[in-house]
Amino acid sequence: MILLGKNLDELEALVRAEEMPSYTGMQLARWLYGSEAASFAEMSNLSKQSRTVLENKYQTGFSEHVKVSVSADGTRKYLFPTGGGRFIETAFMPEARRNTLCLSTQVGCKMGCLFCMTARQGFQANLSAGEIVNQLRSLPERNRVTNIVYMGMGEPFDNTEEVLKSLEILTAPWGFAISPKKITVSTIGLIPGMIQFLEKTRCNLAISLHSPFDEERRKLMPVQHVYPIRDVIRELIRTDAGRQRKISFEYILFRGINDSDGHIREMARLLNKLPCRVNLMRFHPVPNAPLEGADEASLVRFRDALNAKGIIATIRQSRGIDIEAACGLLSTKAMLSK
């Protein structure tokens, strides 16, 4: 049995079952999430007897990366192995004032978005909470991470239970003790999981918008058939989510598709009752996607027009282009080469 990914309640139940001292649960949590110990043998304040039991019956679940690509801009993209010869990607993005870690939540994805490389893998598996937090625990730069974004491979709210558990471990005092204000989960808008997330965490939320128009969005993102963006926004307004945490909308600007003045007007109408901001993103081309990114002038014009309408908009800096940092590129190639 793997211990990484277990919360404090589960660790305490485990030590009770093993007839270890009750405080061993908290000690284990600290070793698993608050230390750099690589094995049970290094957990020096556990009794020798407890360590022997753990070594004989359990695994830590720590898993080192198998590959790293380093960008000229300092972004490091790690490939971590998961079960069944599969791989997931984790990107560490250092900046002057913060260092952001981008986590994956699934191997592949079921959502089939037109512009996404991960979608080309199809869906292979959900990650466990342990596999999600391992991306931080086993990161060489783990002590430099200031912010975490769930924006890697997979749709977090298609794996809600494990994602919520990973957030508990990342934010709990007995876990990694990271402020929820430093964590952002990105979704395409699966409402049931989003409601659970809003009820159970105080982390920030990012929503992939990409078009304010129903017909257009469903051609880019099949999820729109089931969870229209208007329903997602209505739910955020109903729960007053924008006053509890930062809400942002991600918008890749595609040339000739979603970059018109009509899009700006409709976005302003759609978002005007919700405290939020818009992150405009450049498109990193993926094979076979019949889309082109808008040019820099269009990005600036779009940003300024949204700002003029009272919607705070910024242009997100692209990171790691030279190491194929767009979600799914690295692991898709690893999968295809096997």
């Binding site: 037109l114 749709e155 298609d158 051609k219 999820v223 058939h225 076979n288 019949p290 889309l291």
Partner: peptide, 17 residues
């Protein structure tokens, strides 16, 4: 379909999840 010239706006998809 898109490689063979079908505009992506003429492709509507429903996925399982």
């Amino acid at each position: 379909l898109t490689e063979r010239g079908v505009p992506f706006g003429k492709v509507l998809a429903e996925v399982y999840f």
